[in-house]
Simulated assay, not measured.
Amino acid sequence: MSFIETDEHKELRSAVAALGKKYGADYFRACARENRKTDELWAEAGRLGFIGVNLPAEYGGGGAGMYELSIVMEELAASGTGLLMMVVSPAICGNVIARFGTDEQKQRWLPGLASGEITMAFGITEPDAGSNSHTITTTARRDGDQWVLSGQKVFISGVDQAQAVLIVGRTEEAKTGKLAPALFIVPTDAPGFSFTQIPMELENPEKQFQLFLDDVRLPADALVGDPEAALSQLFAGLNPERIMGAASAIGMGRFALGKAIEYVTQRTVWKAPIGSHQAIAHPLAAGKIELELAKLMMQKAAAIYDAGDDWGAAEAANMAKYAAAEAAVKLVDHAVHSMGGNGLTTEYGVAQMLSLVRIARVAPVSREMILNFVASSSLGLPKSY
C-alpha cells in the first residue's frame, strides 16, 4: 500500500469531483425537498463508469476495487451529492454477487449494476433483530424447486428505486436442523413483496423503507453462493459497506469544512477575519487532522479488502467507519458553530447536515457495536453480549 495515489487515482478523483460540482448540493437538496430521485446524477455517474468501477471488467465494470469505489463515494459526498445507493448497490450487492454468485447470476445482474441501469437494495436489518444478525427471523424454506421467503425488514434504503433486493434470510441446515444465514436476490416486483416508506427527519432523496415478504416464491437460482458459507459471504459484503460508510462521512466532513473555511475567511469582525481567531481556527484545524487520520484508515481498509484479506479488512473497516463518523459529526458541528446564525440558514446549506451526518454514527453499524467488535476481536476481551 502506498500513501501516494497513482495518476489514475488522481484523475478519478478529479473526474468525480467535477461531476459532483456539476450537480452540486443545491441539486441534491432540491431532489430531497421535491421528493424526486437523483436520476440524472446516477445515470451520468453510470455512463462515466464511476458506479461500477469496482466490478469485474468482463461484466462491464471498471475492474478496479474498493479503493477506487471509495474515491467515488468520498468525492461525491465532498461535493454535497453523496449517493447513499453507492454504498448499497455496487459495494455490498455488487461485491457479493461478483465473489459468490453463479455465472448466470453474474451475467444477469452485474452489467446493470456496473452501468447503474440496475439498482439493488440490501435487506438485513429487522424490527426485532437490530444489530444481531444471528436472530434474524426472515426464513426461507424449500418447496420443490422453489424457495419461499417470509419475514420483515426495516430501514432498507432505496427500495423504491431498486429492481431487486439482496435479502438476508435463514434456511434450515440439512445436517443440524438449525437455521443458518443465506442470501437471496428478490425482484421488487415479485408477488408477495411489498414495502412502505418510513418517515425520517433527514433531507435526503434516498428514502428508508420497511419490507414485507409474504410467502415470496423464488426460483432455486435466487440463492447466492454456498448456503453453508453464507455467514462469511455476508461479512464479505459488510466490509465494503463500512468502507463506503467511512468514505461518505469523510466526504461530508470535507464539504462542511470547505463551507466553514470560505465563511470564516470572508467574515470580518473587529477588523479581522474571524478565521484568524484561535477559538474559530483550532476546532476546524483539529477536525481536519481527525478527518485525515480517518481517511488513512479507510484507505488501509480498502487496500486490505482488495488484497483478499477479509478478516484484516473487517478490523480496519470497522475502525475506519468509527473514526470517520466521529470526525465528521464533530466537524459539521464546528462548521455550523463557526458560522454563527448563518450556519443555521438554508442559504449556507450546512445546518441540514447536522441530522444527515448523524447517520454515520448509527448506520450501517452503531459506534457501540464497533467498540464491542474491537474490544472482543482486536483486544481479546470477553464479550459483553
Results as ranks from 00 to 15, higher is better:
Arg361Met: 10
Val350Arg: 07
Leu344Asp: 06
Leu356Phe: 06
Ala335Leu: 01
Pro283Gly: 01
Val332Leu: 03
Val374Leu: 15
Ala303Leu: 00
Met298Val: 06
Ala301Ser: 07
Thr345Gly: 09
Met369Gly: 00
Arg367His: 09
Pro283Phe: 01
Ala286Gln: 14
Glu315Ser: 07
Gly380Met: 12
Ala316Gln: 03
Val336Phe: 04
Asp309Lys: 11
Asn372Cys: 08
Val357Met: 02
Asn342Val: 05
Gly380Leu: 12
Ala301Asp: 09
Lys383Tyr: 09
Leu344Met: 08
Pro382Met: 02
Lys288Gln: 15
Ala316Gly: 03
Glu315Gln: 07
Tyr322Phe: 12
Glu292Met: 06
Arg361Glu: 15
Gln299Arg: 13
Asp306Ser: 08
His337Gly: 00
Ile304Phe: 00
Leu379Met: 14
Glu292Arg: 06
Ser378Ile: 11
Leu296Ile: 14
Met339Pro: 07
Pro382Glu: 06
Ala285Ile: 11
Tyr348Ile: 01
Met369Ile: 14
Glu290Gly: 07
Pro364Ser: 08
Gly308Lys: 01
Val329Lys: 06
Arg367Met: 13
Ala375Pro: 00
Leu296Trp: 05
Ala317Ser: 15
Ala327Lys: 01
Ala324Gly: 04
Ala285Pro: 00
Asp306Gln: 09
Lys383Pro: 06
Leu291Asn: 01
Ser355Glu: 11
Lys288Tyr: 13
Gly308Ser: 04
Val357His: 05
Gly312Ser: 06
Ser338Glu: 09
Gln299Cys: 09
Asn342Glu: 15
Asn318Leu: 10
Arg367Phe: 09
Lys383Cys: 09
Gly287Pro: 05
Ser377Thr: 14
Ala303Trp: 00
Gly308Cys: 05
Tyr322His: 12
Leu381Arg: 14
Ala313Met: 05
Asn372Val: 12
Met369Ala: 13
Ala320Asn: 04
Gln299His: 08
Ser376Ala: 15
Met298Arg: 12
Lys295Arg: 14
Ala316Glu: 04
Ile304Met: 03
